[in-house]
Amino acid sequence: MSFLLECPRCGSRPVDEFAYFGEVTRRPKGSASLRELTEYVYFRDNVAGVQREWWQHRTGCGEWFLAERDTRTNEVLAIHLPQPERAQAGGAE
């Protein structure tokens, strides 16, 4: 892995400046059956193709963001800042 990744704040940087936090998961709301919990905690789609995943510019600005990356070629098709849950729900702010 030596590809370049675009940080939303710092621009194109070597991937070793970033921390990878895995594919985007769906966290069960309220309560979850054991199966739902296990799927959320342990199961991953592990696609050979475009995957939405979390990255942090760990040794740079520290920003957390989402990337759409083709896991076969490491081509990053898009990056964006996360849309927080509370903003989506029209939350308290």
Partner: peptide, 14 residues
């Protein structure tokens, strides 16, 4: 620190 920041990126607390 990274853990706190990640969860807050998900939740969006002020």
């Amino acid at each position: 620190t990274a853990w706190f920041e990640w969860w807050n990126a998900v939740w969006g607390y002020d």
